[in-house]
Design a protein around this nucleic acid. Structure first.
Lengths: 184, 184
DNA sequence: GTATCCATGTAACCAGTTACATGATTGC
DNA sequence: GCAATCATGTAACTGGTTACATGGATAC
């Protein structure tokens, strides 16, 4: 058996917060969980159809004048159950792949300055991510309404992961650049 | 066009260090780059065949008595070029997905103690990874021969990434567990 | 005698990405 | 007039995992 479908749970999570169309779901993902999760239409639409057949969600077609018709999905009790069971189950860590590290590992015949260049780029990206996380963090903290206290805490926790992660990577980049300069 | 094949470069990297069979390559990967890269036979063998057709590597069949016959692959000049070009090109960061963060994000209806449980598990895994990295680090440092000074530095750099990463995650786990306990 | 290692490969399957197709409305 | 937004979906494709199939040799 191949990998199981995690997209399903991402979509159930969204629909457990709000009903909406594939389009709405995609927008929600991009604005809330994109720092650790991505989804695209080519996957969202088929998975929604499949989940409807399984009875995890229901569809309702909405017609507004002058607008394309909209398939609004809502989570069912069965869907809520399925989501809850998954949330309570242990995390399956899939091995991640780092192209940066792979490149460094095989760079014995590459001039040090080129290796450093790639690491400088990485560092800049980390910095820009970090700044972005801090902005969203401030936004979430300032906004003491709508989403509920527990949700805010949980969302801040995921952002804080990003902050720790980027900070650690920046530190590693700086150390590594120094190390490489010294062997030049 | 879909994602390009990074496995190719992982295999070229191995073959740029040593000639060997698919089996040898897998062993090498498991013992050297497994902390940031994984490969499996179901992918290695077809990719080797494809690369041979493209002229990036050559095959030589080796027969030893009392052993299964072995396809020993070696990198060609063309393969070396291809690898070098890739090593010099900028890193394409593909978005990563974190199941742990996805679970936390959607856990508003889950008891705090269950969320904490998952984070405790994560912390334990980080600790065990960290210890492993430190052991390999010591092994590499003690062994002042065979692989060359530059290679040792590069390999230590990739390990050091793991160390920074795991330490940051452990810190995040501890902070997060405290935060969650306080909202209980 | 049993588990592990050596060694290669295929088949079935699912995940996920990108491009294509369509078309109206709204804001600049 | 043009770009962006709203809105849904399919097709083509690649990546990658797991299971299956085979079988001798060696170590415990």
């Amino acid at each position: 058996m191949a990998k199981i479908n995690k997209t399903k749970y991402a979509l159930l999570g969204v629909l457990n917060t709000m009903s909406g169309s594939g389009y709405d779901i995609k927008k929600f993902c991009d604005s809330s969980i994109s720092h650790f999760w991505n989804e695209n239409y080519g996957h969202i639409y088929p998975v929604l159809q499949k989940m409807e057949k399984e009875g995890l969600i229901t569809k309702q077609v909405e017609q507004t004048e002058g607008r394309p018709s909209k398939n609004v999905y809502s989570i069912t009790e069965k869907g809520r159950e399925e989501l809850k069971n998954w949330l309570l189950s242990p995390v399956e860590n899939e091995p991640h792949r780092s192209e940066l590290l792979l490149k460094i590992f095989w760079s014995k015949d590459i001039p040090v300055k080129n290796i450093i260049e790639n690491i400088e780029n990485e560092k800049e990206e980390c910095k820009s991510n970090l700044q972005h996380y801090r902005e969203v963090e401030n936004f979430l903290k300032s906004n003491k309404h709508e989403i509920g206290e527990k949700n805010r805490t949980l969302w801040l926790i995921t952002l804080n992961f990003g902050v720790h992660d980027e900070e650690a990577k920046i530190k590693w980049c700086e150390e590594t650049i120094q190390t490489l300069k010294s062997i030049k």
